[in-house]
Amino acid sequence: MKNIFSVFKKKKSGEVAKDRLKILLISDRVNCSPEILERIKADIAEVISKYMKIDVETMEIQISKTGMKSMNASKTPTLYANIPILDLRNK
């Protein structure tokens, strides 16, 4: 979730450290390497693409420890996928 403005502003090293850690710890915590996440992403993209046209380039997936509000366990790892749809109609 990059801010558009962050492209123009050079990040301070403290912020860089925090961002790097957040990504690093996600894969550390679920014992899931970035490569596996990348494969999950590709597979999801493939399945969704059967039904609608999506923007594979900008889609993002991540595992967050926050969990959903409806769930009692606050620390359940949850997979979030952010998939921009280009065309809703069936291909």
């Binding site: 301070k12 090293s13 403290g14 450290a17 925090k18 850690l21 420890k65």
Partner: peptide, 19 residues
């Protein structure tokens, strides 16, 4: 001094990450 300069994670950042 480093935190103020943005070159060290703040205590809140660390607590936030480790929860």
């Amino acid at each position: 001094d480093l935190i103020k300069r943005g070159d060290m994670m703040s205590i809140n950042d660390v607590v936030d990450i480790l929860s």
